[in-house]
């Protein structure tokens, strides 16, 4: 009984953290700038590869993961200045540029680093509840996903950058007139989004096999979470991830992974039909 109850929680937590971690970076960039970052998966891959490379070079895993996150964030900021800045008023075009970027990144990694990369190995071992074995590291991932949500909340609600960012989001022109530098805010936002993608990669690096195209396995989940969440990370991502995690966990458990996958996509379509602006649009409307 205890085992079964905990197992439901564990399954839910596992899907939830996957959705939150893979979507957070995408959501910030989309919510702040209206840019759909098609290279999101490649920022994740970048986090994975940097983490694995620094780990193999001898750094302890947490430090290696920090490196992965930072490198992705830095690359994100540089790319924002070079590629995204000229396209501020053309969000659809930024979709294409980032798609081009993702092609270059995956294939470039393949050519430069090779088609496979040695894995890391999951730390932490397992624990048992009610006769079932579970992975400790998965619980770490769940904690990390809650921390990411808290970080995003504090960043936007309690810092100067957050005030500026929300101002730009609501009315870029007005914010600029009041002295907020939009390009600075955008560069930082893109950096933070890319960094969160890198973090996702860094955290999942020890649990996956590493190939240059691995970013793709996060993409579908990241996109649907963002769509269901709507344009605000603060209001949208957590409830969207929770709702989708419930759908997916239930379907996975009762009907298997195939139905889980298809069901997830159908749930997205239904939710969007009812809430065209996603959870955050709906919540914002209720508040006002």
């Amino acid at each position: 009984m205890m085992g079964n109850l905990f197992s439901y929680f564990y399954q839910f937590a596992d899907v939830f953290s996957f959705l939150v971690l893979s979507a957070a970076g995408l959501a910030i960039i989309f919510g702040m700038m209206g840019v759909i970052n098609m290279a999101h998966g490649e920022f994740i891959m970048c986090g994975v590869y940097v983490t694995a490379a620094t780990f193999h070079a001898g750094l302890p895993l947490p430090l290696a993961q920090a490196c992965g996150t930072l490198v992705a964030a830095l690359i994100g900021m540089v790319l924002e200045v070079v590629l995204i800045r000229p396209l501020y008023n053309r969000p659809l075009d930024s979709l294409l540029v980032t798609w081009g970027l993702s092609l270059v990144a995956t294939q470039g990694t393949l050519v430069l680093v090779g088609s496979t990369f040695p894995g890391i190995g999951t730390p932490g071992g397992g624990f048992e509840v009610g006769g079932y074995g579970f992975s400790v590291y998965r619980m770490v991932l769940f904690a990390a996903s809650l921390l990411v949500l808290a970080f995003v909340y504090l960043l936007f609600m309690r810092t100067r950058f957050g005030v500026h960012a929300r101002a730009v989001m609501q009315n870029a022109g007005m914010a600029q007139a009041l002295g907020v530098r939009r390009s600075q805010v955008y560069a930082l936002s893109f950096g933070i989004g890319a960094g969160l993608a890198g973090l996702c990669g860094a955290l999942y690096a020890p649990t996956m096999s590493l190939i240059p195209t691995m970013g793709a396995s996060f993409i579908v989940e990241a996109f649907v979470t963002v769509v269901v969440g709507g344009s605000s990370v603060l209001l949208g991502t957590a409830p969207a991830a929770a709702a989708l995690a419930i759908v997916r966990t239930g379907l996975n458990a009762w009907y298997g992974q195939i139905i889980g996958q298809i069901g997830l996509l159908i749930a997205v379509i239904l939710i969007i039909r009812v809430l065209p602006d996603g959870f955050s649009g709906w919540l914002a409307k209720r508040e006002s």
Partner: peptide
Amino acid sequence: QETALVVMGALLAATILFVP
């Protein structure tokens, strides 16, 4: 050969940036 996708991606990005 294997650089084809890199060239494609770069061409695409350059087109979007310079020929809006």
